[in-house]
């Protein structure tokens, strides 16, 4: 049989057998744009564990930071006939055509951890209160600065400003730091685009330009390796109590942050409650499938963890359950 015959056979095969295979359990499609940081790995693991606990089947796909690939993967989920989609999108805007695709197929979609830009689609977002958590974290750092009686020059590491989370964290930082203008002066804003190399170069440059920086907030804990490297080069990485200690704060609550808290190098970090958010995401999908009314945005209030409450709150800190090397 020639290839034309094979193609004809293929056509007949498609025509007669084009039907969905029956599913026994509810099937959830989990699409993540990246697994680049511990936070995303912990999140996808928690989502899969929640699916197993709730006896749900799941499909997973990771887009390697490629918005187009993520779009294609979600369309594959739709072809596979998933009952619901949980997506951690690349950014606030490229998720919109994905929401539209899910809506066209009548499949509920929950956007995990990144608030989509304003759009007319039907979706539910699970997101940490980035603004408030950051504000609390920076206020804690500000109180430490004020109590010390010294004046501080400050630096912030900013994330990708196409990401709403990064925008809200920056806003939370700016609003909090304004309350401490008597003791803290912001001298450096380092754009990182959520990239370790850019963070390292930026922090190194900022420390060279302002060697007396004594207050650093990182918009994500995953950037701490870069911060530590730059601080060590500048002979500024010392634990709390040492005269050269820099007041250090972060956001996320990853394993590195936990280790730094334990070793006394980190003063405070804002924690997103991964387990709570994942549980919320699945409950949202199930709620939509059962026609229960849901808010468009479900908030994880998060919490801050510092030297005073470390023992008590580490149980809820997702990074405390992971291993990390500093």
């Amino acid at each position: 049989m020639g290839y034309k015959g094979l193609i004809a056979l293929l056509g007949i095969f498609t025509l007669f057998f084009s039907c969905r295979q029956p599913k026994e359990k509810t099937l959830i499609g989990i699409s993540f744009e990246t697994l680049q940081t511990e936070y995303w790995v912990a999140s996808i693991d928690a989502l899969k564990a929640s699916c197993e606990e709730n006896e749900l089947d799941y499909l997973e796909a990771v887009a390697n930071s490629d918005a187009n690939r993520q779009f294609e993967q979600v369309n594959n989920f739709i072809s596979r006939g998933v009952d619901g989609i949980v997506i951690a999108p690349k950014d606030a805007h490229t998720v919109i055509p994905i929401i539209k695709a899910a809506n066209r197929a009548g499949i509920p979609i929950v956007v995990y951890n990144r608030l989509p830009a304003l759009n007319k689609g039907t979706y539910t977002t699970i997101v940490a209160d980035n603004y408030e958590i950051t504000k609390k974290t920076v206020r804690y750092m500000g109180d430490l600065a004020r109590t010390s009686g010294k004046k501080y020059k400050a630096m912030i590491l900013i994330g990708d400003l196409g990401d709403t989370n990064a925008v809200m964290r920056r806003k939370g930082f700016n609003d909090a730091i304004r309350e401490y203008s008597d003791v803290i002066e912001l001298v450096a804003e380092v754009p990182t685009e959520w990239n370790q190399e850019k963070a390292l170069a930026g922090v190194t440059n900022a420390l060279q330009a302002n060697p007396d920086i004594g207050f650093i907030f990182s918009s994500s804990d995953f950037l701490f390796p870069s911060v530590i490297s730059a601080l060590k080069n500048a002979d500024k990485y010392y634990p709390i109590g040492h005269e050269k200690h820099i007041i250090l704060g972060g956001f996320d609550g990853d394993a590195m942050a936990y280790k730094m808290l334990k070793s006394g190098h980190l003063d405070v970090t804002g924690v997103q409650n991964v387990y709570y958010e994942c549980d919320l995401a699945l409950r949202a999908i199930m709620g939509i499938l059962e026609d229960k009314p849901l808010d468009r945005i479900l908030i994880d209030p998060g919490f801050i963890i510092h030297q005073q409450n470390l023992e008590q709150m580490s149980t809820y800190m997702w990074g405390a359950g992971l291993n990390s090397t500093e």
Binding site: T14, N76, S79, R80
Partner: peptide
């Protein structure tokens, strides 16, 4: 599963 559907063919 789901590969052999019209939806997936369009996809």
């Amino acid at each position: 599963p789901g590969f052999f559907t019209l939806n997936n063919t369009m996809n």
